[in-house]
Design a protein around this nucleic acid. Structure first.
Length: 937
RNA sequence: GCGGGUGUGGUGAAAUUGGUAGACACGCUAGAUUUAGGAUCUAGUGCUUCACGGCGUGGGGGUUCGAGUCCCUUCACCCGCACCA
C-alpha cells in the first residue's frame, strides 16, 4: 500500500464529520481550553495559502490540547457583513446575501480540505439575523448606559436620570461631550421630554451627535480613524475629507484608562500592546482657561507643558474650532472665512502631505493671560488638530518647534523663558533641569517642580486644573451602507428611541438599489418594506409610507467591526435564542485562552472588542473583563509577483535582462504563467488577457524572463497561490507541515514551494516505517536503546516546542527521528505508537491511517499524549560511559544527551571527578549535553 | 521625528537562552539503483588553503575561561504612529 494521500484524506475527513469527532461540550470534568482564530471575511477570491497559516497553528495546538486531556473549544465562523459583497451588488444587482453565501460555501470547502478540527456546530455568521439580533441588543444596552466616573464603570441611563432629577449636574462625575451644559435639578425638570432625551445623548455610550467625521466621497460613507491609512480609505484607497455630520458614535473614550491598564496583565505581543498604548495616547498635563477680551467666551486649552505658561505669546485655534466665528473681528472676517473654507476643502491626505507649509490667519481677537493679564493674539492655524485636546493651544514659541516656526513665519514675538538657553535658531523642547526665568513665581524652578506649582496656582484661582488627555477618540458607528446590521432605533420627533428587545432582530430589509437614495439618504432609504412596525409591533405590508413618515427608522447601518466585537462570546453558546450566551456557558468557558490573528487589527478590532467586553462586564453579562488571555500574531505569507517590462507607450515587452536604458513600465502578470526558471509562457499570456493578444515579446536566448517582487498576496496582484492545488499534488498533511516548516509563526515570509518536497518526503518515509507496499512492517520486537533514545528525545523536544508555538522546529525533530528509525530499520510498535500520536496534530490524516495500521479501531484523536519518561532516561544515563581526559575536561561517550541536570549529577558522581575536586566543591560545572564538561575549581 | 522589531551559508532557517555556530530542509556536486522518473539510497557541501591551519553570526569596541546570545557604539532594512500641543 503506497501513501495515497488524496484517498486517505478524503476518507478521514468524512469520518470526522460523520462522527462529530470535534464537537465540544459545555460541561466536562476535563479542564477547558478555548482556542480561537480571528474569523475571516469570506471574499470572492477564496482562500490563498496565507490564510490557513494561523488556522494550521491553532489546529495543531487544539489537537495537542485534546491529546493532553483538555475539553477544547475550537470554533470557526465568518465576519460576513462587509464592503466587497455590497460593491458587487451595486455592480451586478446580485443580493449581497447570495454572494456571501456562495463565498462561504467555497471557504468551507477549502477549510474542510485541510483537515481542520473545528467544531462546526458552533459556526457563527455576523450577517445571520440570529447573530446580529444580539449585536443589536448590545447596541441598545450601550444606548441605555452612561459612564460613571465615581463608580468607574458603565451604569444604566436610569441612574443618571435619577441623579439629574435629584441634584442636576451637581456632584455628577460622568463622561460626557465637552459641550454639555450644566443643569440644576429644577432646570432638568423644566425641560420637555424631548429636550431631556436630547440632553441624555451627551452621556449615552452609544450616542447621536453632530461630529467632525471622516467622509469618503467615493465610498459614500463615513469611516472610523482606524479605517484610514495614510489619509486614504483602507478599502479602495480613496481620499477622505473632514465633514460635520450627525452620526452615531461609541463613547470608547470613557474606557481609555481601563483599556490602557488592562494591557498590563495580558499575554500579548509587546509591539501590539505598545501600538494600543500609542493609539490611546495618554498624556498628563493641564487644562487652562483663557478669557477672550470683549467677549463672554472662555478659551480652554490643553497643554503638557503648563510650566511654560509665561512663554505664551499667542494662541492658535484649529480652523474648525467653534469659537472661530464668534470671536473673529470684522476686519479679519474675510481672511478668516477664506482660510477656514480652504482648509475644509483640503483632503486629509493633502493636509498630511505638506506639513511643512506653515499657514494661518489672525482672528483679530485677544485672550488674557491668566497670570500676567497680558493681551495675547488669537490665531487660527491648521497645525492645530480639531480632534485632539480642546482643538486649541497656548503657543509657546520658545519651547515648541511648531509654535516657533509659526511665530517666525508670521513675525510674532518670541519670549525666552529658559535661563541660559539660546533660542535664536530653534525652540528648546527638552524637559531638562534648565531653570525658568521671566516666569514670575516659577522663576528658578525646573520642569517637574514648575508643573506642580503652576497647576496648584491655576486650581487656586480657578483658571485651570491638572488633567489627563487621551488621543483616543470616540468611534463613529454609523455607516451609509446596505450590507451591515441595521441600527435598532426609530425616531419620534427627531428623538432617537430604542426598539424593544422583543422587536429584535430588526431584520435588514430588501431594497431594489444598493446605492443612496436620490435624496441622499443611505441605501436603507430605498426599503419599502420593513418587518417591523413602530407603534403597534405588527408586520407592515406595503404600507411603509404611513409608519416611516410618522416614526422613521434609523437608516444607517453598523460598521464592520460591530459583529466582531463580541463574536467570541457567541461561540460559547451559539444556538441560544434567549440570550447571547447563557450564564452557565459563559462561566464555563470564561475567556479565550489562545487567540491568533494578524497584527493589522491592533487598533481596530482588538481595541473595540476589548471595549465591548469591558462594557458587558460592567453590566455583569460576562465573567471576565479581558476576553483574550494570550494572543499571537501570525506573520503574513507574502506572494511573489511576476513582473514584465513594457516599453513605454507600446505593446512591446522586453525580457528582464535586455531592458537596459529603455524607458519601460512594469506590468504584473499571473504567477501561474511563469515556470520555476522564471520563463514566461508566451502562448498562455496571450490568451490570459486581451491586451497581450497583439503584443510583441523581445526574448533572450529564446525565452522571456520575468522579474519578481515580494508583496502582499492579493487577487489584484496576480500572485495568489491557491491551497487547493497544493493539496491536490501533495496532500493536506504536507501543506500543513510545510506551512509550519517555512519559518517562525510570527514572522512574515514569502511563499515558495522550493522546500515542499522535503516535507512530503518525510511523510512518505514515515509511511514506509509502517508499510512496504502491501506488507505491514510493524513488529512487536522491542526497540533498541538508540531507537528508544531518539523517540524519547523527539517526544521531549516536540512537546516543549509545541508549548512555545515553535512549530517549525517540531517538523525538523520529526524528520531527524524518522531518518534515524529508517537507518536503523526499526519498525517496533513500542516506538512507532507514541510517534503517531505525536505527529497527529501536525498531519492528522496520515496519523489516523497509521494508527489503524497499529491495530487500533478508534480514532487517534482519542489517544493519550505520549509521556516523556524521566525514569527511563535515568536508567539510560546510568550507563553513560564518562571518560576523564585531562585536567578539566570530560567527554561523554554519546552523541546526544537528554538532560543537563542528570548528566551533571552523573559526572559529579564519577570517581575521577571526585579525585579531581579533592573534596572541595566545584565553583562551576559547565555541561554541554553529550559533548564536553568543564569543571572550574 | 517617536515607538517596536530584524540582520547567521547559495536559500528557508536551528542553536538546549552565556557553552563544539550553521541542526533540519531546499539547492548544488559525485556515486549507486532503476526501462524511465519531479522515485529511492549513499557520500560531500560556511569561507579560505594542496595540506597543517586560518577566518567566520551587518561593522567597530567591551565584559567573560568562553559571546550569534550580555553591555556600549555604528550601519542597513522592515513594521506601526506621526503637526498629539
Amino acid at each position: 500500500m503506497n501513501y495515497d494521500f488524496n484517498q486517505i484524506e478524503a476518507r478521514w475527513q468524512k469520518y470526522w464529520a460523520d462522527n462529530n469527532v470535534y464537537k465540544a461540550t459545555n460541561n466536562s470534568t476535563q479542564p477547558k481550553y478555548y482556542i480561537l482564530d480571528m474569523f475571516p471575511y469570506p471574499s470572492g477570491a477564496g482562500l490563498h495559502v496565507g490564510h490557513p497559516l494561523g488556522y494550521i497553528a491553532t489546529d495543531i495546538y487544539a489537537r495537542y490540547k485534546r491529546h493532553k486531556g483538555f475539553n477544547v473549544l475550537h470554533p470557526q465562523g465568518y465576519d460576513s457583513f462587509g464592503l466587497p459583497a455590497e460593491q458587487y451588488a451595486i455592480q451586478t444587482g446580485q443580493h449581497p446575501a447570495i454572494t456571501t453565501a456562495e463565498n462561504i460555501k467555497r471557504y468551507r470547502e477549502q477549510l474542510d480540505r485541510m483537515g481542520f478540527s473545528f467544531d462546526w456546530n458552533r459556526e457563527v455568521k455576523t450577517s445571520d439575523p440570529d447573530f446580529y439580533k444580539w449585536t443589536q441588543w448590545i447596541f441598545l444596552l450601550l444606548f441605555d448606559a452612561y459612564y460613571c466616573n465615581t463608580a468607574d464603570k458603565a451604569l444604566p441611563i436610569s441612574n443618571l436620570v435619577a441623579h439629574l432629577a435629584q441634584k442636576g449636574t451637581a456632584a455628577l462625575d460622568a463622561v460626557c461631550d465637552s459641550n454639555t451644559p450644566e443643569l440644576t435639578a429644577k432646570e432638568w425638570e423644566q425641560l420637555s421630554e424631548e429636550a431631556q432625551q436630547h440632553y441624555l445623548l451627551h452621556y449615552r455610550l452609544a450616542y447621536l451627535a453632530e461630529t467632525e467625521v471622516n467622509w469618503c466621497p467615493d465610498l459614500g460613507t463615513v469611516l472610523a480613524n482606524d479605517e484610514i491609512i495614510n489619509g486614504v480609505s483602507e478599502r479602495g484607497g480613496y481620499p477622505v475629507i473632514k465633514k460635520k455630520m450627525k452620526q452615531w458614535s461609541m463613547r470608547i473614550g470613557a474606557y481609555s484608562e481601563r483599556l490602557l491598564q488592562g494591557l498590563e496583565h495580558l499575554d500579548w505581543p509587546e509591539s501590539l500592546k505598545e501600538m494600543q498604548r500609542n493609539w490611546i495616547g495618554k498624556s498628563k498635563g493641564a487644562s487652562v482657561r483663557f478669557t477672550v477680551q470683549e467677549h463672554q467666551a472662555e478659551l480652554e486649552v490643553f497643554t503638557t507643558r503648563p510650566d511654560t505658561i509665561f512663554g505664551v505669546t499667542f494662541m492658535t485655534l484649529a480652523p474648525e474650532h467653534e469659537l472661530v466665528a464668534q470671536i473673529t473681528t470684522e476686519a479679519q472676517a474675510e481672511a478668516v472665512t477664506a482660510y477656514v473654507e480652504a482648509t475644509a476643502q483640503r483632503s486629509e491626505r493633502e493636509r498630511m502631505a505638506d506639513v511643512k507649509t506653515i499657514s494661518g490667519v489672525f482672528t483679530g481677537a485677544y485672550a488674557v493671560h491668566p497670570f500676567t493679564g497680558e493681551q495675547i493674539p488669537i490665531w487660527i492655524g491648521d497645525y492645530v488638530l480639531a480632534g485632539y485636546g480642546t482643538g486649541a493651544v497656548m503657543a509657546v514659541p520658545c519651547g515648541d518647534q511648531r509654535d516657533y516656526d509659526f511665530a517666525k513665519h508670521f513675525d510674532i514675538p518670541i519670549k525666552n523663558i529658559f535661563e541660559g538657553v539660546d533660542i535664536t535658531e530653534a525652540a528648546y523642547d527638552e524637559k531638562g533641569n534648565t531653570p525658568l526665568t521671566a516666569s514670575d513665581f516659577l522663576n528658578g524652578l525646573s520642569y517637574a517642580k514648575a508643573i506642580e506649582k503652576v497647576i496648584a496656582a491655576l486650581e487656586a484661582e480657578d483658571k485651570g486644573k491638572g488633567t489627563i488627555n487621551y488621543r483616543l477618540r470616540d468611534a463613529i458607528f454609523s455607516r451609509q451602507r446596505y450590507w451591515g446590521e441595521p441600527i435598532p432605533i426609530y425616531y419620534v420627533n427627531g428623538v432617537p428611541k430604542a426598539l424593544r428587545q422583543e422587536d429584535l432582530p430588526l431584520v435588514l430589509p430588501e431594497v431594489e438599489h444598493y446605492l443612496p437614495t436620490p435624496e441622499g439618504a443611505p441605501p436603507l432609504g430605498n426599503a419599502t418594506q420593513w418587518a417591523w412596525d413602530t407603534a403597534q409591533h405588527k408586520v407592515v405590508e406595503n404600507s411603509k409610507i404611513d409608519h416611516i413618515t410618522v416614526f422613521p427608522l434609523e437608516l444607517n447601518t453598523m460598521p464592520g467591526w460591530a459583529g466582531s466585537s463580541w463574536y467570541f462570546n457567541r461561540y460559547m453558546d451559539s444556538g441560544n435564542d434567549q440570550e447571547f450566551a447563557s450564564a452557565e456557558a459563559l462561566d464555563y468557558w470564561r475567556e479565550v485562552d489562545l487567540y491568533l490573528g494578524g497584527s493589522e487589527h491592533a487598533t481596530g478590532h482588538l481595541l473595540y472588542s476589548r471595549f465591548w467586553q469591558k462594557f458587558l462586564f460592567d453590566f455583569g453579562f460576562v465573567p471576565v473583563e479581558e476576553y483574550a488571555k494570550k494572543l499571537i500574531n501570525q506573520g503574513m505569507i507574502l506572494g511573489t509577483s511576476a513582473i514584465i517590462y513594457r516599453e513605454k507607450g507600446t505593446q512591446h515587452y522586453i525580457s528582464k535582462n535586455k531592458v537596459g536604458d529603455t524607458a519601460v513600465e512594469p506590468i504584473r502578470v499571473d504567477v501561474t504563467l511563469v515556470n520555476a526558471q522564471d520563463e514566461l509562457n508566451l502562448d498562455a499570456v496571450k490568451k490570459w488577457q486581451p491586451q497581450f493578444k497583439a503584443a510583441t515579446f523581445d526574448t533572450e536566448n529564446g525565452v522571456f524572463l520575468v522579474d519578481h517582487e515580494v508583496e502582499k498576496m492579493s487577487k489584484s496582484k496576480f500572485n495568489v497561490i491557491n491551497p487547493d492545488a497544493i493539496c491536490e499534488s501533495y496532500g493536506a498533511d504536507t501543506l500543513r507541515m510545510y506551512e509550519m516548516f517555512l519559518g517562525p509563526l510570527e514572522q512574515a515570509k514569502p511563499w515558495n514551494t522550493a522546500g515542499i518536497s522535503g516535507v512530503h518526503g518525510f511523510l512518505k518515509k514515515f509511511w514506509r516505517l509502517f508499510y512496504n507496499h502491501d506488507q505491514c512492517m510493524v513488529t512487536d520486537v522491542p526497540a533498541g536503546a538508540e531507537e528508544r533514545k531518539i523517540v524519547h528525545q523527539t517526544i521531549k523536544k516536540v512537546t516543549e516546542d509545541i508549548e512555545q508555538f515553535s512549530f517549525n522546529t517540531c517538523v525538523s525533530s520529526f524528520m531527524i527521528c524518522a531518518n534515524a528509525l529508517t537507518t536503523a530499520k526499526c519498525h517496533s510498535r513500542e516506538v512507532l505508537e507514541p510517534l503517531v500520536v505525536l505527529l497527529s496534530p501536525f498531519a492528522p490524516h496520515i496519523s489516523e491511517e497509521l494508527w489503524k495500521a497499529l491495530g487500533h479501531n478508534s480514532s487517534v484523536t482519542q489517544a493519550a499524549y505520549p509521556q516523556f519518561n524521566p525514569e527511563w532516561i535515568k536508567e539510560q544515563q546510568k550507563n553513560y560511559p564518562v571518560s576523564f581526559n585531562g585536567k578539566m575536561r570530560f567527554t561523554l561517550a554519546l552523541d546526544l544527551a537528554l538532560d543537563r541536570e542528570a548528566i551533571t549529577a552523573a559526572v559529579m558522581a564519577e570517581p575521577q571527578t571526585q579525585k579531581y575536586l579533592d573534596g572541595k566543591p566545584p565553583k562551576k560545572v559547565i555541561v554541554v549535553p553529550g559533548k564536553i564538561i568543564n569543571i572550574v575549581c
